[in-house]
Design a protein around this nucleic acid. Structure first.
Length: 857
RNA sequence: GGGCGCGUAGCUCAGUGGGAGAGCGCUCGCUUCACACGCGAGAGGUCGCUGGUUCGAAACCAGCCGCGCCCACCA
């Protein structure tokens, strides 16, 4: 090692992630290690993941950080195993989200999108994307995510659009996609229809009004209850339960709609609950999902009185037209009161649909939209999960998936937005022909007339559903598709199992001819430290980039792995610090080894007991960490690694062998280099930066760690004997240290002692417990295992005695506990014999130690 | 209304049939020549409650209490 390098290493007593990470990342990217070569066609032993594409508008949040860290660990693990590995990367155009961001920016300049028109607006969004779209890419790199950035895709790029159109046309031709006038969830906020999945229900306290509807040709009334009296203007029937004796006579007659005067047929329908309210239900097919169903069943007229702008339309009549829904409600209630039709008003709390997008209350409206029927595609997608071809981890999410898939309703796929994949649907200006084609047609194929393209765009999730194969180049002869489809695992959060995961399975099976992934790993959701949701608006968000800046990417990754769980967890800054400390520990321990290794060649030399011990512990750790990574158990993988490195390697082994290391023992140095190399490789998937940085300081490394082999546990190194023997000496050392502490022996003082019995402990015991074993004669004031401590100046004899008494009490309690167990005849008869034996052995051992301690004085 | 999950040390979480664990925090002691982002030692828990199964339960079963989430068309 040259002097300059030695000096630099000696001086760097603290691992500095900020300095290291940028440098290491650059070498990875320059080396092209993240980009698999597919030029030869099929690749050997492929491993692939399609990243859940982050929104172009988005900044990296804690969900991405967790999700990205997990995927990266899997990708790096398999890349190091020599598999041909691709982590397909790209961003999502995110329809409404992106359109809103750009609209807001325009509004700040006093421009509305309608002023500049569709074409110009879309152009502006693309410009916006050019300017800011790469932000999130750079942020993933800072995390260390080894995505294939060379083939970055965008869900609105040219090739992707081709995939979307191909799928749309195919589904249309199969009859799965159709246009219909149907009651949809209208989001007045984004002025678009949204799907059922984009609706969230919230508890709202409304007023429940009871209104008298006079029965035609009689003095009687039917009293109906509603929280939305303004929709009565669109009522087209009154319904009662067919078994309801009270109303049997009314069925078939008519009621008169107050304020409007329309005749409403009185119908019987099972849906009406005779127990609720008066048992009579006003039917508004135009503005209520239930009523819509009932209306279609009974062939009722569908009247719409609320427009897409959320205001009362002309249909509502002169008095109310133009009012907002809230104003109309007040006006209707006032009018009813005037007419004496309002019977009661009471407070009523119920679930109300809101738009997940805009946060506004959803207005159910009848609208001409495009729908996708799901039943046909769902059947095979259900089968693959039932068969276990697609496995969920944790398993319970598989059942959630199946429950949803078995109850699918048609999906409204059209959106009244400008930013997105415009429907490949063309209407003839001359005839009724509707043309659906991937390639834009020039003229109407039926009559040659001019064509007008549908104004709507597709739900973003429609294009997302194609991601695993479209990202790899479908449709067409893409080498990546050939090599890497199906992918191995999808890593995502549970909130998009329906929106995304389920639809990918359906589309993958239908269009790519195979499942899109064989595993779905559902990550935990990380909450704010106080247990609330992490969210910008609540001010509870923690920016992973801040954390990376402060503690390093490896620290954040370690923290996230350690936090990850099968349930939701609160963000733990302490776990991130634990990761930071581990990275620092790795750096310093490695520095110790490198600076003292001389010219040693990495090689395991199980010369002495402690060497056999650490080599055994190392291989067991390799086996354990590997198994946990493969089982998606990242928390335990991280913590097992931590325990080995910190406790076994640093606290014990390095402390044990320091004298040998300083003496320049070559075999030892070889072993140490071997252990360091192996543990770095084992850690690399989780802690890529610090391990790569240290790797580059090791002598004669041919390739960077990112493409070096991942260790395979060598079971021939497992050594129960060494583990037992050294474990015993470690326990003895700890007992002696405890005794010193209790006896008030100064930390630096050496204790005079001698050995009793024939079993001599390892040299490490006397050194690490600071004993002078030549303690010859003199009275023993204490016995700790095979060590007799001889009275000397430094010892407070009284304290020592107290310590011994405490130990005696402890042992007596242990003996009693074991005796109690053995006194239980059921235990002796039914418990496994080895367990019973070990209790007997315990009693003997403890009695022996008690005998050594002597009687209380 | 249906379903899922959770309740373990002051805090955040592991542990799912054989003697309660980790990290942080806390206490005591260390300028020990890799690391004070360090080293050594320690205190701290009737494992939500009540019953049951078992030789043995934090773990399995039942009920209850509390918290969270998802799905669902009672106006």
């Amino acid at each position: 090692m040259d002097a300059e390098r030695r000096q630099r290493l000696e001086a760097t007593t603290r691992y500095d992630p900020a300095e290291v990470e940028a440098r290491v990342l650059a070498t990875w990217l320059e080396g092209g290690y993240f980009h698999p070569d597919v030029s030869e066609g099929d690749v050997a032993d492929p491993y692939s993941i399609a990243i859940p594409p982050p929104n172009v508008t988005g900044a990296l949040h804690m969900g991405h950080a967790l999700n990205g860290s997990i995927q990266d660990a899997l990708i790096r693990l398999n890349r190091m195993r020599g598999r041909s590995t691709k982590w397909a990367f790209g961003t999502d155009h995110a329809g409404i989200a992106t359109q809103s961001v750009v609209e807001k920016e325009l509004r700040a300049q006093g421009i509305s999108r309608h002023e500049i028109g569709r074409e110009e607006f879309v152009k502006r969004v693309w410009e916006w994307r050019e300017r800011y779209g790469s932000t999130i890419v750079e942020q993933f790199k800072r995390l260390g995510a080894s995505c294939d950035y060379e083939t970055e895709r965008f869900t609105l790029d040219e090739g992707y659009a081709k995939a979307v159109y191909t799928v749309f046309v195919s589904l249309y031709e199969k009859g799965c996609i159709y246009r219909d006038n149907y009651l949809v969830n209208w989001d007045p906020g984004s002025r678009s229809a949204i799907s059922d999945l984009e609706v969230e229900s919230r508890e709202v306290t409304d007023t429940l009004y009871s209104i008298d509807y006079p029965v035609e040709g009689s003095d009687e009334v039917l009293t109906v209850a509603t929280v939305r009296p303004e929709t009565m203007l669109a009522d087209t029937a009154v319904a009662v339960n067919p078994d309801d004796k009270r109303y049997g006579a009314f069925v078939g007659r008519s009621a008169i709609l107050p304020l409007v005067g329309r005749r409403l047929p009185i119908i019987a329908d099972e849906h009406v609950d005779p127990e609720f309210g008066t048992g009579a239900l006003k039917i508004t097919p135009g503005h209520d999902p239930n009523d819509f169903e009932i209306g279609r069943k009974h062939g009722l007229e569908e009247i719409t009185v609320i427009g897409e702008d959320g205001r009362m339309s002309a249909e509502a009549g002169e008095t109310f037209a133009g009012m907002s829904v809230a104003e109309a409600q007040k006006a209707v209630v006032a009018a009813l009161r005037d007419e004496g039709r309002l019977r009661t008003e009471e407070s009523y709390t119920h679930a109300v649909p809101f738009s997940h997008r805009s946060g506004e209350r959803v207005e159910p409206l009848i609208s001409l939209q495009w729908f996708m029927r799901m039943d046909e595609l769902a059947a095979p997608a259900i089968e693959v999960v039932e068969r276990g071809d697609v496995r969920f981890t944790p398993e319970r999410w598989g059942r959630v998936y199946l429950d949803w898939m078995r109850n699918l309703r048609p999906w409204c796929v059209s959106r009244q937005l400008w930013w997105g994949h415009r429907l490949p649907v063309y209407y003839c200006e001359e005839c009724d022909e509707v043309t659906v084609a991937a390639e834009e047609p020039q003229r109407c194929p039926a009559c040659g007339g001019a064509l007008r393209r549908d104004e709507d765009v597709l739900d973003t999730w429609f294009s997302s559903a194609l991601w695993p194969f479209a990202v790899l180049g479908w449709p067409g002869e893409a080498p990546d598709l050939q090599a890497f489809y199906p992918t191995d695992v999808l890593v995502t959060a549970r909130d998009i199992i329906f929106l995304w995961v389920a639809r990918m399975v359906m589309m993958g099976l239908e269009f790519a001819g195979d499942i899109p992934f064989s595993d779905v790993y559902i990550t935990s959701v990380i909450q704010a430290p106080d247990g609330r949701r992490m969210s910008k608006s609540l001010g509870t968000g923690i920016d992973p980039l801040d954390e990376i800046g402060e503690h390093g990417a490896d620290a954040v990754r370690f923290g996230l792995y350690a936090m990850s769980s099968t349930q939701d967890v609160r963000y733990s800054a302490a776990k991130v610090r634990q990761g930071r400390d581990l990275a620092n520990k790795m750096w310093n321990a490695s520095r110790l080894v490198i600076l003292n290794a001389g010219d040693a060649v990495p090689e395991a030399n199980p010369a002495r007991l402690e060497d056999r011990w650490i080599l055994s512990r190392l291989e067991r750790t390799v086996a354990s960490v590997t198994a946990k990574l493969d089982a998606y158990d990242f928390a335990h993988a991280a913590l097992v690694l931590y325990d080995f490195f910190w406790s076994e390697l640093c606290d014990w082994y390095l402390e044990i062998v320091k004298p040998r290391l300083y003496e320049g023992e070559a075999d030892l140095a070889g072993s140490l280099l071997h252990v360091v190399e192996r543990v770095l490789a084992l850690s690399h998937p989780m802690l890529p930066f610090v391990t790569e940085a240290i790797w580059s300081e090791l002598p004669a490394r041919e390739r960077p760690l990112v493409v070096s082999p991942f260790p395979l546990a060598d079971e021939t190194r497992f050594d129960d004997e060494a583990e037992f023997a050294l474990g015993r000496d470690i326990e003895l050392t700890r007992a002696l240290r405890r005794w010193r502490d209790v006896a008030g022996v100064p930390a630096g003082a050496t204790l005079s002692a001698r050995l009793v019995g024939e079993q001599a402990p390892h040299e490490l015991v006397s050194r690490l417990a600071r004993l002078d074993l030549s303690g010859g004669g003199g009275d023993a004031i204490a016995t700790v295992g095979p060590v007799e401590i001889v009275a000397a100046g430094a010892i407070d004899v009284e304290l020592a005695r107290q310590g011994i008494d405490a130990r005696r009490t402890e042992l007596q309690a242990e003996v009693e506990r074991a005796e109690r167990k053995l006194g239980n005849t059921g235990f002796v008869a039914k418990a496994p014999p080895e367990l019973v034996e070990s209790e007997r052995e315990k009693i003997e051992r403890h009695r022996a130690e008690l005998a050594e301690l002597g009687d209380p004085t």
